[in-house]
Design a protein around this nucleic acid. Structure first.
Lengths: 211, 211
DNA sequence: CCTAACTAGAACAGCGATGTACGAGATACA
DNA sequence: TGTATCTCGTACATCGCTGTTCTAGTTAGG
């Protein structure tokens, strides 16, 4: 079977089916894989529909080499997104969610904001390339964390209950994304972003106590 | 000069330079132009990067005919956006902006929401095709109207002044867009949208009176 | 230091989209 | 009813991107 001869690091994909974990590849190759993943984020951030050639150039790697690591564009995007989300998970899982709901929400938003700002463009690219279900699946953890907190806040009377949690969640997302976009085009100082986001979301979500 | 022979309604572009207003074209052609403009909106709404062929099919018109009306894709998108914005202007200019700022804001948002929901995808497509400056220019009117209202609200003490108007404006945009997206994927009842939007924006923007 | 793993680059095939050219047919409107 | 205007379909040239193949060179690591 000369077809499977596998140029470049085709050997990486030794394992037949999906879900091949980091195999026994050379240190060299692992470094390149990381470079490609990083390059994908920056290339996509600069231009949402960057070509594979663009990405390879950004990563400082040959286009063919890239194809050695990832079978096609979709797989590349998915890997980059998974990588970003895994890093994000590491950060977010450290955020203490106990105590007052509003304060915990503020902490979680502050940490999430940085991650959103970094991989917003990548997510947008993924939405074109991957089935929506897959995207959902990958975001499951992060989404569940925020949703759980919002629910608890509602139960405890900290957050308003006249709106469904799904809408609070959506609002949180779009405001963070909006801030990220404003930063990108230079209309918002990154320093101000977390404060501005909180300034909108907290009064909007908080249950009014007096009437 | 057989090059300029002008198949189809190339005659439409009789005027040499830019800004050719509706010329003396046949009633037939005018109808088709309208069909194409409408088709562009629906086609783009269904698929953000629909091809010219897709759009022509949606409009029920030959691809070549479309090129008779618009020289290239960019010109088509721009025309469709201009058309949508002009219609929008007709609606928004009727909204009474006097009286209490918060109430006026509510009225303006209610009217804007419908328009945003209709041409959100078109705007996204335009952002890829047209220079950002051109987009800005086209939105000038609508943007100025909302900005003026927010400013007045700040001066009158109705809206908070600890955030710049630009951020209030951005927030308004992203929340409306978010609602539109949620409607599109069927997670939000269009009926609820205006109420949900207000429920977020008003408490977020309103100056707290007591402390 | 030797071999297997990895990389680079050029070249190629395939696809889909854009924009143009042509020829013939349909339709408004005077 | 006649003619300029408009439309349609097909066909074509071009371009950029994807994914593959081949060859030759470089590097990691036992």
């Amino acid at each position: 079977m000369p077809t499977k001869k596998g140029t470049a690091s085709g050997g990486t994909r030794r394992t037949p089916a999906t879900g091949s974990r980091a195999a026994n590849q050379r240190a060299d190759a692992q470094r390149n894989r990381a470079k490609i993943l990083a390059g994908t984020v920056t290339a996509i951030s600069r231009n949402p529909d960057a070509s594979v050639a663009d990405i390879a150039a950004e990563a400082g790697v040959g286009r063919v080499t890239l194809y050695g690591h990832f079978q096609n564009r979709a797989e590349l995007i998915e890997a980059a997104l998974m990588d970003s989300l895994e890093r994000g998970e590491d950060v977010l899982s450290e955020v203490p969610l106990d105590g007052e709901a509003a304060a915990a929400f503020q902490r979680l938003v502050a940490s999430s904001w940085v991650l959103v700002d970094q991989s917003r463009a990548l997510l947008a690219a993924a939405q074109k390339e991957l089935p929506a279900a897959r995207i959902r699946e990958l975001h499951e953890n992060a989404e569940a964390r925020m949703r759980g907190l919002l629910l608890r806040g509602q139960r405890e009377g900290a957050f308003r209950v006249d709106l469904p949690v799904s809408w609070l969640l959506t609002t949180t997302h779009v405001v963070m994304n909006g801030a990220s976009e404003e930063v990108r085009i230079g209309r918002l100082d990154p320093e101000d972003a977390p404060r501005f986001i909180d300034a909108i979301l907290l009064p909007a979500f908080t249950q009014k106590r007096d009437r």
